[in-house]
Design a binder for these strands. Sequence first.
DNA 1: CTAGGGTTAG
Length: 890
Amino acid sequence: MNTRKLSSFDLKSRDFIYTSLSNTLSSATNPRDLHKIHSLIITLGLYKYVLFSGKLISKYSQFKNPLASLSIFGQSSHKNNVYMWNTIIRAMTHNGLFSKALDIYTQMRGLKIKPDNYTFPAVINSCANLLDFETAKLVQEHVLDVGFGSDLYVCNALIDMYSRLNDFGRARNVFDKMPKRDLVTWNSLISGYSSNGYWEEALEIFFKLRMAGLIPDCFTVSGVLCACSGLMEVDEGRVVHGLVEKIGVKKDVTVSNGLLSMYFKFDRLMDSRNFFDNMDVRDAVTWNTMICGYFQFGLYEESIKLFLQMVQYFKPDSLTVASVLQACGHVRDLKSGRSIHEYLVKNGYKDDITANNVIINMYVKCGELLAARKVFDSMKSRDLVSWNSIISGYVENKFYEEGINLFKLMKIELEPDSITYLILLSLCIHCVDTYYAMQLHCNIIKSFGSTITLGNALVDVYAKIGKMEDSKKQFENMETRDIVTWNTIIAACNHCEDCSFGLRIISRMRNEGITFEVATLLSTLPLCSFLGAKRQAKELHGCIFRLGFESNVSIGNAVIEMYSKSGMLGYSIRVFKLMKTKDVISWTALISAYGMYGEGKKALRAFEGMRKVGVVPDHIFFVAILFACSHSGLVREGRACFDQMKKDYSIEPRKEHYACMVDLLSRSGMLAEAEEFILSMPLKPDASIWGALLSACRAGGDIKIAERVSEHLLELNSDDPGYHILASNAFAALGKWDQVKMIRKSLRTRGLKKQPGFSWLEIQNRVYIFGTGERFFEQHQEVSDLLDILSDLMAKEGYVADLRYVLHDVEEDEKFDLLCGHSERLAIAFGLLNTEPGSPLQIMKNLRVCGDCHTATKYISKIVQREILVRDANRFHLFKDGTCSCGDKW
DNA sequence: CTAGGGTTAG
């Protein structure tokens, strides 16, 4: 009886230990407890129970110790038990060891252990994570073989897998054949669609789900939010937000994060902020979304501040750090950048490739190339982004050779991508290296064929290195073009001053029905400014209204410039007045406009107005105001502006400001003072400064100073042929033909060509262009005859040709012919012949108007009684009844 | 078995 009692007690206590230990094991919350329980199980010999081995495996996996799980499984004697296999496979997938999971599954099949419906979901999940389509199909066959083709869990896993693999045909096939579906089934399909960018489809499934009478949960809402954000469907988004409130999933932090991120995607900064402030639960992702969202709004300091707040509550992960490091780079906050770098190293992100890439980028942006390189060199493995980042770092910091060398090294390790080539193409622009650009072009064709982005970059590069023909060829050869292609070619036309081609491009765009973007207009408007094409200008202005861009500040600024350069100062002023927001550039545009028309007083008054509204001038603004003063002979006022710039705005004068001052003094005939000013400058005077003085000397006829200044100018040996021509002209005026010949020879040997002069005018929507000395145009004979008649009439009025403006050493009467061949005269004569008597004429010239032509035009305006508006490279001259608006201070 | 946040160029 005693024995029986005892053994009954024994059994009971055994039973008790078994159950309580099993419970303790399940509820263990830390690895230390787990170890203790594990030892106890070994001591008590409970290993022989399948239950304990299995629970230990999953518990270790829960604490991220898959190696312990594997070791227990290896030592286990229950290899014929499917529960053990299921457990170890799940342990592996739980720890992200998907190929190990598949290995074990293969072993299991080899041992002919029959899987059950708990086996497959984890196996299928592994295939999905590995994007292993082939194994996936084999597993599905296996599923059908062993008869789990209709199992809810297995089918859900299959749908998830196929939709993640972007094979919605198979996913839908499984979905359609299921005898019974649950919410997870629908959710899997929705998130599959939305994470692959099939947003409409995701919403469609969502509506079907609702029609089927199911109540959405957090998973559903997350997927739908992602789709709404992608579609930028504000209305849908609102509906979902309402739904979130209604079904009460708002306390789910993932759903809230989804909403937060949606508001950012809709550019609703304040809504995002309010939502964030009212969130009950926040996690690291919440903070990341905020930091990243603020970054995308350009609120860099704010996003760094958010980061500093976040670290009080959460340990930032590599994703957080990636966002905030970008912000540091943007504002060149090296101090924060460095400390975050240290944080990453200390917290075990040393080998996170993305984190390192972002650090490299941050250092590059802060100009710390050596620090960037040190990180790059210390990386265990590098990806494309790492290489591209460091190469672009070298290019950005102007170490071009090192950039190319790194590119060579890169090619040994991996295949460069299109971004690598974009970086190298930008290098070509900086170095003006046509040969290397062509070499890259060949490589690009070999490795990528033709892609739009690279094609666009090539159009851009060829134009910027001055190969406009190659740029056009590249543009024409492109099979497909996007709006950027068009914007780029127009910008290219601008850069190379190939305006007529630019206008043709614009009409091609119209014919092809391509909608203009702000960027398109920002390249097109300067094209019209350059051409001074009135009709095109008005048409474009209309187009701006139709597209609703009239309140865009940059557009407004460009329109002011366009009208002023097209001879329509009134329109320019009106546009300025109507602009709701004006920045310093708008004011600069207005003041330059006044300056070009010699309205210096009005320019100064506008400056007063600008000061009153509190807009702060910058250094470019001062160029404009000094220009305006100098073109109106306002010496005292100009000097005052120059002094103010330094005193009131602490802007250190640059070369261009000194050049304006020299221009101001010398234009008003104060040549000696101008020379003195140059010699007392704190900067070394360059060609533009001496050039300003020299061109005034010539107009003022001071030969002595002209000769001295010419010597200075030639010493500097500028790359701009204009200054050599200027000096050569000065010597020609002095009759020093030997010097002239020498300059011409040196220009020839250096390959510098004088920019050919041409003039153009618009008559009835057509632009007519005339080159100097050109004889092949419509009505050449008539034009020539008219010029002959005009010169007779001019002579009677007292005109004497100023032969100093002829550069060639030829006979006097031939010189006279050469003057008459100047492009502006041809254009004026052509204009007189083809427009109504008494109507005003408007002529554009690419260079500065010649002094003799200036005089001649004054006479012509009186003889024919016409207003002649001439825009040269600098400004407008309005000729009227024998005088010019520039007051001869051209 | 199902959900959210990150890197290079333009």
